[in-house]
């Protein structure tokens, strides 16, 4: 039994730690947000297909911010990080869809 004590302790610590450190269920925002497929952009501003969540569920802007890639933080900077679309099959190098109200489908780059 002694030889298993360390292992059992490690498992208990790991599960407890992950429960405290890993973000759990997030509270839904009070305002209703649309869900999108999020695309990166090429340096010339055209779509970089496929969407980062092409094979998965759609995300609202708030959800996308919580799970998003390094470099995206939405400080309303000029450089766009991700563009959202209701379509999961926008063509490569196509023009990104326009911003919706309050830039709901725009995520901006983090300040460098």
């Amino acid at each position: 039994m002694k030889q298993y004590v360390l292992s059992i302790l490690a498992i208990i610590l790991a599960v407890s730690f992950s429960a405290f450190v890993t973000p759990g269920n997030k509270q839904k925002p009070l305002t209703v947000e649309n869900e999108y497929y999020w695309y990166r952009l090429h340096t010339n501003g055209t779509i970089d297909a496929p969407a980062v969540n092409a094979s998965g569920p759609t995300y609202t802007k708030t959800e996308a911010l919580n799970i998003t890639l390094d470099g995206c933080d939405d400080p309303q900077d000029d450089d766009i990080c991700l563009v959202g679309s209701e379509s999961s099959s926008l063509a490569e190098n196509s023009t990104p869809p326009g911003p919706t109200m309050d830039n709901e489908n725009r995520l901006y780059k983090i300040d460098q």
Binding site: L9, L13, A14, S18
Partner: peptide, 17 residues
């Protein structure tokens, strides 16, 4: 024990997200 902790922790974190 270190690897048990590491793998269980990262696996549970991945499962939860």
């Amino acid at each position: 024990a270190i690897f048990i902790f590491l793998f269980v922790y990262t696996a549970v974190s991945k499962l939860m997200n």
